[in-house]
């Protein structure tokens, strides 16, 4: 019960932080309105999926270094398939790319289980492999996205029961994000499988002795991570209209948001809501830096420094949380 309170307390604190950063934004730029919130939601989209991908694996006690490369590969695949194709063809591309993410994620898991090499090494090797594959699919940034897909993240979602002023604060990108995450996460959280994922992250041996199929659960966790990463890749293609074979800064951002979101890097603790709020906080801080008219390159430095500081803080908390004298 106390753990439940603590976790919810963390999420509540984060939410307060988000509101605080929001107020700061409003102070810096009094004209910050619903339109800007819409572009924030669009910018958050790929980051949020990257964070979701990382969260599932971290809860299961692993780490996925191939998230950004997986997004690059799925993004270029979608962009090159939709290039010059009809609008209807995209109806086929989306499930294909999602399935590809699922399969490649499962491959990560299978390799970890079969070779018994630690997660961090396997996913590092897969980072090379997926990066290479992305370059093979598309040598330089290019491709295209279907118009209806591009339209699906622009503007606001018309919700009939809401008055117009409130509706303006519900961008389509946010709705899309919430739907995609909930469709996967809520059934998972309530199922036996979800419980198993938490169990193997918390204590693998205890989980094994309680009859949890550890290997299968780990593979499923990585497959889900691949699925979320594929969503991230698709959202990249949709929001930019092209695919780029170079992985973006999503790996470090995802780890930082996971740590800030209250998911212990050791596994077994935390949820999806915390990291998602954390990613909004991190993006909004970036918006603030831009609004303060700071050179974009300097913004990149500050952002990187914040993320490193967050990860250091998280590691520090993990040391403190351990009993005295335990091996780090």
């Amino acid at each position: 019960m106390s753990r439940f309170l603590r976790n919810q307390g963390w999420v509540a604190g984060l939410f307060a932080l988000l509101i605080f950063v929001f107020v700061v934004t409003k102070l810096i730029q009094p004209g910050y309105g619903s339109g800007d919130f819409g572009s924030l939601a669009r910018a958050v989209l790929p980051y949020a999926f990257a964070v979701a991908a990382q969260t599932v694996v971290v809860i299961a006690g692993g780490i996925d270094l191939s998230v950004a490369a997986m997004m690059a590969l799925t993004s270029v695949t979608a962009a090159s398939m939709m290039n010059g194709a009809s609008e209807e063809y995209a109806l086929f591309v989306v499930p294909f790319v999602l399935a590809m993410g699922l399969v490649l994620g499962a491959l990560n898991g299978v390799l970890i289980v079969v070779t018994r090499v630690p997660d961090i090494v396997v996913t590092l090797a897969m980072l090379f492999v997926l990066q290479g594959a992305a370059l093979l699919v598309l040598g330089a940034p290019g491709g295209a996205a279907a118009e209806w897909l591009k339209a699906s993240v622009v503007g606001t979602a018309p919700i009939p029961s809401l008055p117009d002023w409130a509706d303006a604060w519900v961008p389509k990108a946010l709705v899309l994000l919430v739907i995609c995450l909930c469709i996967v996460w809520i059934p998972l959280r309530r199922s036996r499988l979800g419980l198993s994922i938490y169990a193997i992250g918390s204590d693998e041996l205890a989980a094994f002795r309680s009859g949890v199929p550890v290997a299968r659960t780990r593979i499923v966790a990585y497959a889900l991570s691949g699925l979320f990463a594929a969503m991230g890749g698709l959202s990249l293609t949709i929001s930019t209209g092209i695919g780029a074979p170079i992985p973006g800064p999503y790996l470090l951002a995802s780890v930082a948001a996971v740590v800030l979101g209250g998911v212990a890097l050791g596994g077994g603790k935390g949820g999806l809501l915390g990291p998602i709020i954390a990613v909004f906080v991190l993006r909004l801080v970036r918006t603030d830096l831009t609004l303060l008219a700071i050179d974009p390159n300097v913004t990149a430095i500050i952002e990187g420094a914040i993320m490193v500081a967050v990860v250091m803080f998280g590691a520090f908390i993990t040391i403190r949380g351990r009993p005295v004298g335990a091996t780090p």
């Binding site: 090499v117 396997v122 090797a125 897969m126 090379f128 492999v129 990066q131 594959a133 370059l135 093979l136």
Partner: peptide, 16 residues
């Protein structure tokens, strides 16, 4: 791209 794929698999298999 092919070279990177190969290097990735080399790292994985040699470690295993």
């Amino acid at each position: 791209g092919g070279r990177r794929i190969l290097f990735g698999f080399i790292v994985l298999f040699v470690t295993a």
